[in-house]
């Protein structure tokens, strides 16, 4: 389901964009004293809508944070940038992917930002284990889908 589209290796843009992600994580720590894990922040937003186990009570800044994420590509375009995005059109696959990512980050208490950026920066052993596992399982999944199944 993932036709391989070659993408250009962008070391400088990626390093710079990564630094902005880091800046945001530092802002969230400095302002709210929290780790900037997107799945955790989403959890807080979700808790405002449906009854949820262990959803944080302080929701407003989390809702605002998610709105900022949503607004980002629009703001980027407004200032003349182009947003490149190729999303798979396989809706069954995308639905399954969304479900697994939600379930996995809900169970595993974090995603690429919470474990991968904030957790590793805190030198958390739990986060290191999570990152190694999701990287390995992501690499294995892409290998099977692109090089074994011939789907």
């Amino acid at each position: 389901m993932n036709p391989a589209i070659a993408t250009e290796f962008t070391p400088f843009a990626s390093l710079g964009g990564g630094a902005l992600i880091g800046l945001s994580a530092v802002m969230v720590m400095a302002l709210f004293g929290k780790v900037a894990g997107i799945s955790g922040i989403t959890n807080g937003v979700l808790g405002a809508v449906v009854p949820m186990a262990s959803a944080p009570r302080d929701r407003n800044w989390r809702v605002a944070f998610i709105l900022g994420l949503i607004a980002a590509p629009l703001a980027y375009r407004l200032f003349g940038g182009t947003v490149e995005q190729t999303v798979s059109g396989n809706l069954v696959g995308m639905g399954l992917a969304g479900f697994l990512i939600g379930l996995g980050t809900g169970l595993g208490s974090g995603c690429t930002s919470g474990h991968g950026v904030c957790g590793l920066a805190r030198l958390s052993r739990r986060s290191l284990v999570a990152v190694l596992i999701f990287m390995a399982s992501g690499i294995a999944t892409v290998f099977v889908l692109r090089h074994v199944g011939g789907v």
């Binding site: 389901m1 992917a97 697994l100 990512i101 596992i133 390995a136 999944t141 889908l145």
Partner: peptide, 8 residues
């Protein structure tokens, strides 16, 4: 599970 979804 997250990794599998990420890879899909």
């Amino acid at each position: 599970l997250f990794g599998i979804g990420w890879g899909i």
